[in-house]
Nucleic acid binder design. Sequence first.
DNA 1: CCTGAAAAATTATTCGC
DNA 2: GCGAATAATTTTTCAGG
Lengths: 152, 152
Amino acid sequence: MDLDKTDRKILRELLINARISITELGRKVGLSKTPVALRIKQMEEAGLITGYRAILSPIQLGLSHVTFMQIRLGDTRQQALLQFNAAVREIEEVEECYMIAGGFDYLLKVRSRDMADFRRVMAEQISALPHVSATSSFVAMEAVVEEGAIPL
Amino acid sequence: MDLDKTDRKILRELLINARISITELGRKVGLSKTPVALRIKQMEEAGLITGYRAILSPIQLGLSHVTFMQIRLGDTRQQALLQFNAAVREIEEVEECYMIAGGFDYLLKVRSRDMADFRRVMAEQISALPHVSATSSFVAMEAVVEEGAIPL
DNA sequence: CCTGAAAAATTATTCGC
DNA sequence: GCGAATAATTTTTCAGG
């Protein structure tokens, strides 16, 4: 699906405020309600807009502790990777997980209440993942950019 | 602010669909509209809910290439860190940036169209950041978990 | 702290142009 | 893509448990 300038404007507004009304959105992008509603529906149906989510404050939730973990697997055959992927998706503290080309196999971003909570997650959840042979952890001291803008 | 079970239920629903109506939300959590609307407003005012955003598909946007970069600074005095932080926030391709305790100074997640686009971002933007002394990049081969659930 | 309900305002949807 | 009419929702308010 290709996007014109108006589509991009609409997306930018929906990234700022997903609950904006069609009326106000139309006003902001310089169109009437009808085409705005149509464009949004088309972008939803094209799978470009996959949903709308509330954004919560990690600090207010007491979940400001972020740790990145490098994980190396002892077995990197397809079957082992699939088992690892499936298992890691079950850990709710794992906010992100990428398979990496290079020196290690996976990079995980783990969110927890504090260091003690992270140690619990690591001991109870991460260590139990299949085929893990080594891990190293890097604790975030400061979040400089948490949710960067999307380059539209 | 402390959350009871109902608040958590509301948050879970708003994480799934931020555009759900108060009526339906009330039905899902087993309350009438009035207290649901009140609780949402309170959570917004407490800064717990910071906003509502559309979720876009990186693949449909042609932005599925993810690279993590370790960055070491030559100068790690407070002034230099502040300059780096301010500059990195201006790069829209930087989706996340954390200051790290340990072997390197910053970890960046960079989103781009493809490898060629990443090289452009690195050459034009990342290299221009102040006080950078060394970088190493790790290309993601597969996104196993992109937006994990929040442990409420 | 919740329910239920009514009125007023706003929004979404539909359709002819 | 516009603009108007129709239909659906939301917000606000209030009496009562």
